[in-house]
């Protein structure tokens, strides 16, 4: 029977239906859990990029605000939907005053696209905080751009130096090796073995800040 013409086709069909069915059932049962985790992680990242400013305005500690998620997110964070602006943007509001903005930005790494959250001061010139949302870089190499030491280099740096420029509004930065000590505030440490990924982060920030400035120069968020 195994040598007949139809047997292998029927056998293969049964196997495909069986395993696809198992996967479909398993995915259906896990789908909500996965989506909830992803949404929570995303919202917590938004909150944490603006938490210092919220904490200063409310005289609470950042840890208290993070611990109070999801209530604190609902209380302080609002999503904006500006006309024609093609990025997700959020604002932190305390007592009707905006204390920070947070943008979801996108770019390309070595192996694929990446996205990040960058919070800015209300004049959009200073990066307050920076967090990676998605990246497809090599674990242990390029993926190390998610490590705190790399991300914290971008905290409180004045990224926009030419707000009136129509060419490039951003500051120029020089990458130095991970083991070197920066000599000035324009030197940032790159991830060892991941030069292209490190450069891609700066490239993404530059391109996105120019896009944001292009928009805010003519319209309000």
């Amino acid at each position: 029977m195994k040598d007949s013409f139809l047997y292998p086709i029927v056998f293969m069909l049964i196997m495909v239906v069986l395993f696809t069915g198992i996967l479909a059932v398993m995915f259906r049962f896990s789908e909500e859990k996965i989506r909830t985790y992803e949404d929570d992680t995303y919202q917590k990242k938004i909150l944490s990029t603006m938490v210092t400013q919220i904490a200063e305005a409310t005289e609470q500690s950042p840890d208290e605000i993070i611990a109070a998620y999801p209530e604190s997110f609902e209380q302080y964070v609002q999503q904006l939907k500006p006309d024609g602006f093609e990025r997700k943007v959020y604002q932190a509001v305390v007592d009707s005053a905006v204390v920070a903005y947070c943008f979801e930005i996108k770019g390309n790494g070595l192996w694929g696209s990446m996205s990040a959250l960058v919070s800015t001061s209300t004049d959009f010139r200073t990066i307050l905080n920076f967090a990676i949302v998605n990246q497809q870089e090599t674990p242990g190499l390029g993926a190390r751009i998610e490590e705190d030491w790399f991300l914290s280099q971008f905290q409180n740096i004045v990224f926009v130096v030419n707000p009136e420029s129509t060419e490039d509004v951003t500051q120029s930065y020089e990458f130095i090796s991970e083991s070197q000590k920066p000599e000035n505030d324009r030197q940032l440490k790159r991830v060892t073995g991941a030069t292209i990924t490190s450069d891609s982060v700066i490239k993404m920030l530059r391109a996105e800040f120019n896009y944001i400035y292009d928009y805010v120069r003519s319209k309000e968020l």
């Binding site: 996967l23 398993m26 995915f27 896990s30 859990k33 996965i34 985790y37 992680t41 192996w111 497809q136 870089e137 674990p139 993926a143």
Partner: peptide, 17 residues
């Protein structure tokens, strides 16, 4: 699917592998 649903941090750590 199991890692994404139950051990999301490890799933993220492993990435594409």
């Amino acid at each position: 699917i199991f890692l994404k649903a139950n051990m999301p941090l490890i799933s993220k750590q492993l990435g594409p592998y």
